[in-house]
């Protein structure tokens, strides 16, 4: 980037915010919270600038490559963090959300940055497909982190360790609500993402007969969506699953599926390879991929 802003710039800003948050566990640092917000805000500005430059250079960005998809997911999670910091200034939410942001940025550095082949499907379906999966991924992540916080908070209270200083977490009631909403949102988004992916294929070729159903990305994504659907139905039908640690376990399991999907995207994906590449299969040549590279994870 000729602006001088690269991934390291905003990753470093988020890392500084995380370091400041960590320092609060052991010591009273003056102006720590302000420092955290400033560092994270600086990171978000640089992050936005970086994605904006990509859009300026490539109209299909910021969903034109796997790398951009991860970076956009990290951007959404960073926005969630800053909003949480604003509404719950005394809670240690950054300890959980910022590692998520940094992990997504880390995944972005591993993912291919090259633009995907030009797509033949209607652009609107591609965008819908990519955005559904992006929001769904962030929702699963938020639900996982809320579930983690719930179990940690619950454990501390069971052990009679009242959190007077250091790690301060939201109440169990708040975490339970956040967790439930994240699960509902993730289910909706992932179902929408899967459905719009199939529609995209149909729009391209008019048939899904030669669809690569055995592709690791497709399998893991379909499994995760099925799990989310079952979990959501289970949560609504079974009262005990609506509250307490069960809903936390449900979202944590969903995160396990998400990790499988992301691993498949990074290392096992044959589904979205461009024409003429060594990995491309005959199926893929019949059914060209959408522009939204990460969108079909």
């Amino acid at each position: 980037m000729d602006s001088g802003i690269n991934i390291i710039c905003f990753a470093a800003s988020y890392a500084v915010a995380l370091a400041l948050e960590l320092s609060g566990l052991w010591a009273t640092v003056r102006f720590r919270r302000m420092g955290e917000v400033l560092a994270a805000a600086a990171g978000l500005v640089a992050h936005t600038w970086y994605l904006g430059r990509r859009v300026a250079e490539q109209p299909a960005a910021p969903l034109a490559s796997q790398q951009e998809w991860f970076l956009l997911a990290a951007w959404v999670l960073a926005v969630v963090y800053l909003a949480a910091r604003f509404y719950y200034p005394s809670k240690s939410l950054g300890l959980f959300l910022l590692p998520g942001v940094l992990s997504l940025i880390g995944a972005a550095t591993l993912a291919p940055a090259k633009p995907l082949v030009s797509f033949e499907a209607p652009r609107v379906w591609g965008i819908v497909h990519g955005l559904f999966l992006l929001v769904g991924t962030v929702a699963v992540l938020v639900g996982f982190l809320a579930g983690l916080m719930y179990l940690l908070q619950s454990r501390r209270l069971k052990l009679k360790r009242l959190p007077t200083t250091g790690l301060k977490l939201p109440s169990l009631e708040w975490l339970e609500h956040a967790n439930s909403r994240a699960l509902g949102m993730a289910t909706l988004m992932m179902c929408g993402g899967l459905l719009s992916g199939i529609i995209t294929r149909l729009a391209q070729k008019g048939s899904t007969l030669k669809f690569s159903w055995t592709d690791p990305v497709v399998i893991s994504l379909a499994a995760m969506t099925a799990w989310l659907l079952v979990a959501e139905v289970f949560r609504r039908v079974y009262p005990a699953a609506r509250q307490g640690r069960k809903v936390a376990y449900l979202t944590m399991a969903a995160f396990g599926f998400l990790l499988l999907v992301l691993a498949a995207v990074l290392w096992g994906d044959r589904f979205h390879q461009p024409y003429g590449t060594a990995e491309a299969t005959s199926v893929e040549r019949i059914a060209p991929q959408t522009l939204l590279r990460g969108g079909e994870k």
């Binding site: 209270l157 009242l162 200083t165 109440s171 009631e173 708040w174 609500h177």
Partner: peptide, 25 residues
């Protein structure tokens, strides 16, 4: 200082430090 952040009566600890960890309102 952290003087005011630590509650020292049983009732205040029970409500302000324990119950608020479980209930939002």
């Amino acid at each position: 200082t952290t003087l005011h952040r630590h509650r020292v009566s049983v009732a205040s600890v029970a409500i302000s430090e324990l119950a608020t960890c479980v209930f939002e309102t």
